[in-house]
Nucleic acid binder design. Structure first.
Length: 288
DNA sequence: AACTTTTGCAACCGCGAAAAA
DNA sequence: GTTTTTCGCGGTTGCAAAAGT
């Protein structure tokens, strides 16, 4: 990792103080002393840290490595203990219940991992954050979306290659009326009324959803390019569309009264329409 | 079997708030 | 009251292992 030019917040403060001839306050935390170990911890280091904390506790992380005889900075020791060595850390895969809790809390709290971790005894914020980014983010959108997105990406890649080698196919755009009909049919046949949560309601409660990007967020709040979504955003939208059993889904896509409000631009953006059609076809196949 | 790409996760970094000198 | 450090947090990175070609 590159850290030559990166200076910690504290170091910058200290240097300014020194330039002025001032050296007040506490001693520095992690002086960039040469010879400090970095990277993965060795079992011997773990043992030393555990033994020391068992014997003396960890009142002062800065002083700890020196007292324990470790060639690590205090910050590194703290992290290792908190995320890995603490005796109350729970090992193994997350249970269904734990994952469900994370999903629920994330919906409420956003990326406040430590707050989420407080409700999951034995799990660390770092671990929860990792699980979220590697698993739940996708699965939240749709249980099948992980594989779907994978397939879509592959398919898109292949078709791109193909179109590069031959003449590119003409783009397919849906007419506005066609689009409107499609969405209203889709919502009707699902036999679900989503009037309780209108897009306006959603907007007014947007704080609750601040960190989860939704179609509404993209359309209303976020996109400076006015409808030209990034690859990841489009994939996310595609995944959202295949999760019709969540009320948020309807709130973010639109209501039966204006079903295509947010989606029209997506489908008519200057991008691969066959890709979108594939996503849609997949969703419908799963849903109906 | 060899090579490439993707995934999972531990550890790092900078920052803001709180605490200490 | 001011200055500086410490702590804790969330975002990001890098690498080993697994999966895919």
């Amino acid at each position: 990792m590159e850290n030559v030019d990166r200076r910690s917040h504290g170091t910058a403060h200290r240097e300014r103080g020194r330039k002025k001839g001032i050296d007040r306050g506490r001693a520095p935390c992690c002086e960039k002393a040469a010879g400090l170990n970095k990277g993965p911890w060795k079992p011997e280091e773990d043992q030393i840290l555990v033994n020391h904390i068992r014997g003396f506790g960890h009142g002062n992380w800065r002083a700890l490595p020196k007292q324990a005889g470790l060639l690590r900075c205090g910050k590194s020791c703290r992290l290792r203990w908190m995320n890995y060595l603490r005796p109350d850390i729970k090992r193994g895969n997350f249970t269904e219940e734990e994952e469900e809790t994370i999903v629920q809390l994330h919906r409420k709290l956003g990326n406040r991992w430590s707050a989420i971790a407080a409700s999951l005894p034995g799990r660390t914020d770092n671990e929860i954050k990792n699980v979220w980014h590697t698993n739940l983010k996708r699965r939240l959108l749709d249980p099948n979306s992980a594989s779907m997105i994978q397939n879509m990406k592959k398919k898109k890649k292949k078709s791109k290659k193909k179109s590069e080698s031959s003449n590119a196919r003409p783009r397919l755009f849906l007419e506005q009326s066609e689009m409107e009909r499609f969405w209203s049919d889709a919502f009707m046949s699902m036999d679900v009324i989503a009037t309780e949560t209108s897009p306006t309601d959603h907007q007014s409660n947007s704080d609750d959803f601040s960190s989860s990007t939704t179609i509404a967020d993209i359309s209303i709040n976020g996109d400076p390019t006015d409808g030209n979504l990034l690859e990841d955003e489009r994939l996310q939208v595609a995944a959202e569309m295949s999760d019709p059993f969540s009320i948020d889904h309807f709130a973010t896509i639109g209501t039966p009264a204006s079903p295509n409000h947010y989606c029209y631009d997506l489908f008519n953006s200057d991008d691969d329409m066959d890709f979108w059609r594939d996503c849609l076809a997949y969703s419908l196949q799963e849903v109906f």
